[in-house]
């Protein structure tokens, strides 16, 4: 997995609560059996005026000029600023894949839906929770100043503004460690194989019916 230590990037403000995963990456693009290539269809229904099709060349499609990512001042963004309950809806990991593929490294919001939040960490994308008031401030700052950048320092767990203001955020120690080092979680768990096997043996003794063959 891609490591995340500290990142400084231009911020895109997506001023909308409850952004769901269907909005982040509509279902027709989930038919891909790959993990990459979703960036061009990120926020497809908000970004383009026509209906997107899988495997389509998006360069000539009519753009929704109003949409934040289509405004020239937000070219090259890598930090997404969003409202509460970001990423609600389905478990599709295609949502963080699409954000990552587009070039985002971090999403800042007052709250996230659980599964999306979890999925971000597996893909080197850092979700940061800041309180609603701080997020409001950042929205204003970002809209007021073209090219507004934030630094997200995972090691120190702070978001730093260009003026030097710092906002602390929480992150669970295990996830932090994995992200900082870009660790392979499966490899980590497999280091505990012996413990898992011991558990499995006693689990089977207690609940033998859970280990019966499935009917084919």
């Amino acid at each position: 997995m891609k490591a995340f230590t500290s990142h400084t990037g231009v911020v895109a403000p997506l001023d909308r609560a409850n952004v769901d995963t269907d909005m982040i990456i509509p279902k027709q693009f989930l038919k891909s059996i790959k993990r990459t290539g979703f960036g061009k269809n990120l926020f497809d229904e908000l970004r383009y005026l026509d209906e997107g099709k899988p495997d389509q060349d998006c360069t000539g499609r009519p753009l929704n000029k109003e949409f934040v990512l289509n405004q020239p001042r937000y070219a090259g963004v890598s930090v997404l600023l969003a409202r509460k309950n970001f990423g609600c809806g389905s478990s599709r990991e295609h949502a963080p894949w699409a954000l990552d593929d587009y070039g985002f490294r971090c999403v800042i919001a007052p709250s996230f839906a659980d599964i999306f939040f979890n999925n971000c960490f597996k893909n080197g994308l850092l979700p940061v929770v800041l309180d609603e008031q701080t997020v409001d401030q950042l929205f204003s700052a970002c809209e007021a100043q073209e090219g507004y950048k934030l630094t997200i320092d995972l090691e120190r767990q702070v978001v730093v503004t260009p003026e030097g203001a710092k906002f602390a955020f929480e992150v669970d120690p295990f996830r932090k460690e994995c992200l900082l080092k870009g660790l392979d979680e499966i490899g980590l768990t497999l280091q505990e194989s012996a413990t898992i096997q011991t558990f499995e043996v006693s689990h089977e003794r207690k609940f033998p019916w859970l280990f019966a063959e499935l009917r084919d």
Binding site: E93, N118, K122, I186
Partner: peptide, 8 residues
């Protein structure tokens, strides 16, 4: 529900 990385 879990994500694809967790499925793996």
């Amino acid at each position: 529900g879990i994500g694809t990385s967790e499925v793996e």
